[in-house]
Nucleic acid binder design. Structure first.
Lengths: 109, 109
DNA sequence: TCAATAGGTCAGTGACTACTTACGCGACAA
DNA sequence: TTGTCGCGTAAGTAGTCACTGACCTATTGA
């Protein structure tokens, strides 16, 4: 249960893959179209697609000499619900808050 | 805009860090409490905390010789809304779907 | 049959992760 | 002051990631 979520979130943690996924939210596309989207070599685009497929986020099928991909939303719903669970719990647990701080990265200029 | 989301999702992609965050959804905790949660050395727990702080997901403050942490929900809301955006778009774009397939990982036994 | 197209695979590289043990440092209690 | 507690940092290591260019395999259209 945690493993899929981890694989999935790591897949989402890359902007190229998020771009591909976002493109697919509008409808199916071929490997070529999804590779064109990125500013890198075509093999790299293909490898990103493989990561998405591996994570169960998209569904792919050969169509002639093209390969068509589409979103497979199950794990996206899973992530949405994990996030929602944490946030809803946090919202429902009003405790005293610490004074606000910047993220750690900006503390070491 | 994409950078924070990437850092954040990568932080969430680790089950130890998700456990810490989930614990924090019930209220603030110290570094020690959050390290005990994990099955690894205390420094490792501390390093995971540093990643969460770096990603802006938690907010920390020295209290005597302890350090207290709490959830900082802004980026969690951001992720929830990115995911929601993709899913809502996908739901509203009814196109023909490809026949269902297993994730790629199960194709290579 | 041949060339072009679409796209996947391989090997190599440099950068980053996730740990470990060892150590340092400030807060507090005796 | 001295020990101990809570916690962070440093250094090292094994493994993983994101690319690249070169190569290979099918499908298709001339």
């Amino acid at each position: 249960m945690g493993a899929e979520l981890s694989t999935m979130l790591r897949a989402l943690a890359d902007p190229s893959r998020r771009a591909q996924l976002q493109r697919l939210s509008y409808g199916p596309a071929t490997s070529g179209q999804l590779a064109e989207l990125l500013t890198m070599s075509r093999p790299a685009g293909s490898q990103h697609l493989a990561v998405l497929i591996d994570a169960g986020l998209i569904n792919s099928m050969q169509a002639g000499r093209q390969r068509r991909h589409e979103i497979r939303p199950e794990y996206l719903y899973l992530a949405e619900s994990w996030l929602g669970g944490v946030l809803r719990q946090w919202e429902s647990a009003p405790t005293l808050r610490l004074p606000d701080r910047e993220p750690r990265v900006s503390e070491r200029p």
